[in-house]
Each structure stands twice: as structure tokens, then as C-alpha cells.
Design a binder for these strands. Structure first.
Lengths: 126, 126
DNA sequence: CCGAATCCACAACGATACTG
DNA sequence: CAGTATCGTTGTGGATTCGG
């Protein structure tokens, strides 16, 4: 369950690895489509096509790619129902749900400051 | 200060504008470099070159572009000291600080789940 | 020191077509 | 319905240079 059994002296190489890993994860997650997918799945379980409809403007390809990425990181779970036509459902894992909470904060922030930011933009563009 | 003085009946066109604006802001902010800049500025005021050093791997160009964007959205303030050589300092505005709080959550999440995600990746790649 | 502009290599993205 | 592969276009981002 844990990476190391004993806390040895802080190894510099370990710290660098952890840092670059954090950076990688951050890059994966700090992405427009990824965040929108997580947010959409907050509601519960959705099929591929439902996600596609839910997220305005996302292409088939982007949706697939991001879902694979999120699955790889263990943030969404993919369950295939062996029926014809195929039925594939996506749902947030526990880590995914934890992430969603922080994204909710981001969404709240966006809506709270919408007017403020809009005004600032107009000022700047003049 | 407020966009509308009275809450009239919800105008569909208004809602669409607000939505697309929210999407725009979201796209601006849900970006790797933008988030890292906000996070770096959390500490206080930094010069351009300090930011450049602080944020590993960011190019001169990306830093400039993102700072302009953040300034335009009113999230960072840019103050130019009229000296030679030029001294330009960046600091978070109040909305920027509010955003930083939610980003802190994202960073915490990343570090909390680092091991978990790493394990999930290894499993997936096999 | 800071920023804008140019160039260009390369990755991202959309569209399309094909498979199970 | 869901996923993969290919292709062509667009655009992003790094390196460099010049200007204030």
C-alpha cells in the first residue's frame, strides 16, 4: 500500500522523481477537457455518447483520449457491458471524486467572478 | 458594480453569453502554465526573471503570454518600476488570490494521491 | 531586464473511414 | 455504440533576434 516501508534519509533522487511525477499528473489534470469530463461525471455514471452530448464542443477523438488518460491515472472507471450494441459506462473512482471537489471550487470561483473578470477584460482591451 | 440592477426574467441570450464567457475563462485558467504561475505568485511579489527561475521549464515566451492573459483577466497586477535596467513585478490581485486557494486544493490533491496514481499507471501500462 | 516579433518544427486536433 | 487508425490542417510553443 505504501511506496516505502521505512522513512530513510530523504533521497534527492527520490524527491526529483516525485516532483517530475507531480508535474506530469498536474499536466494531465490541469487540462480543459479533462476537467470538464470530471465535472460532467460528477453527476453519476454516464455512457460514452452521453458524455459526448453533455460536454459541448468535444470531439469523439478528444473524449476517447482523455478518458483513456483518466482511466490510466485511476480517476475514472470504465465498465463494458457485453451486449450489442456495446454499452460502455464511465464513473468516477474515489480519487476522481476527490479531484472533482476541488474542480467544483474552480467552477464556483469562475461563476462568482464572471462579471469582475469580464469588466477587467474590457478595460484591458481598451 | 453589478451587471444588472434588477433581476429580470432570465434571458436566454444572456445565459448563453454567460456560459460561453465562463467557458472562455475556464479555458484560460485551466492551463498548466497559468496555474503554476498563480501558485508561484502565492508566495508574494516576484519579478519576471524570478518567476522564470521559479517555474521550471517555462519559456520566456510562455511566461510573457500567460502573464498578459492573467493581467487581462485581472488576476495578476503588473507594476513597472521606471529604472534601468527595467524592474517589473507581478503580484496576485484579490480575485487571483481567491483562485490560488482553489489551486492549492489541486496541488494538495496531487501530492496526496501521487503514490496511488503512480500505482494505477503501472497497472494500466501492463 | 523585459517584451515584442519572426520563423519554423512539431504536436494537437477534427474529419473521415473502418472494425468489433 | 464504442474504439482505433490515418491524414491533413491548424496552431502552439521554443529559439532567436531586436528594441526600449
Amino acid at each position: 500500500m505504501v511506496t516505502k516501508q521505512f522513512d530513510g534519509p530523504p533521497d534527492e533522487a527520490d524527491l526529483r522523481r516525485a516532483d517530475s511525477l507531480a508535474r506530469e499528473i498536474f499536466s494531465d489534470v490541469a487540462d480543459k477537457w479533462a476537467l470538464l469530463i470530471i465535472e460532467a461525471l460528477g453527476e453519476g455514471t454516464l455512457r460514452f455518447s452521453e458524455l459526448r452530448d453533455e460536454i459541448e464542443g468535444i470531439s469523439h477523438k478528444m473524449l476517447t483520449q482523455n478518458l483513456r488518460m483518466l482511466e490510466r491515472n485511476g480517476l475514472v472507471e470504465r465498465t463494458v457491458h457485453p451486449v450489442v450494441p456495446p454499452r460502455v459506462e464511465y464513473t468516477l473512482t474515489r480519487p476522481g471524486q476527490a479531484l472533482r471537489v476541488t474542480i467544483d471550487g474552480l467552477c464556483d470561483w469562475t461563476h462568482r467572478l464572471l462579471g469582475h473578470i469580464d469588466a477587467s477584460r474590457r478595460r484591458f482591451d481598451a
